[in-house]
């Protein structure tokens, strides 16, 4: 695999948009994330059980959501990025058959001892509404 490029903090501007990322959520996507994160709660692999708990279907666990938020940001920023914080508010469930669209933009830039601390406001939404909204803080080389 050819080495991906990383962004430089000095090239960024407040208001820069991240490329949208569309995740076609399926049962397999949900179960793969749940098991990789060692989360065996039935709502994340058993649709019938999830419905008995009032959910529309089985739904993505929070560890997986955080994993995709991290991936969304580092796919854009590159391998030199260091994620410092992922703060999200949780809303509509991510369920099979509903595309989850990740979008975001740079909201602040600050120089700090040779690197640039970047804040990204992000949203992951499907047709049910906002699944996760929040802020990711990362650092990049100048």
């Amino acid at each position: 695999m050819s080495a991906p490029e990383s962004l430089k903090g000095s090239e960024l501007k407040v208001g820069d948009a991240l490329p949208d990322f569309d995740l076609p959520v399926t049962s397999t996507v949900i179960v793969a994330g749940a098991i990789a994160s060692r989360d065996f709660m039935p709502v994340h692999h058993d649709a019938e059980y999830a419905r008995s708990q009032g959910a529309p279907d089985m739904f993505m666990n929070i560890l997986t959501t955080n994993g995709y938020v991290s991936r969304f940001v580092t796919d854009w920023a590159g391998p030199e990025a260091m994620v410092r914080k992922i703060a999200i508010r949780l809303g509509a469930p991510a369920v099979p058959g509903k595309m989850l669209r990740f979008s975001g933009e740079v909201t602040s830039l600050a120089e700090e001892s040779g690197e640039v601390v970047v804040e990204v406001a992000m949203r992951a939404a499907n047709e049910l509404g906002d699944h996760a909204t929040g802020t990711v803080t990362l650092s990049l080389p100048r």
Binding site: A3, A36, D75
Partner: peptide, 12 residues
């Protein structure tokens, strides 16, 4: 397991 499950190809 994690990077395959989430298809996260960050080489680090």
């Amino acid at each position: 397991h994690w990077v395959d499950a989430l298809d996260d190809r960050n080489p680090v």
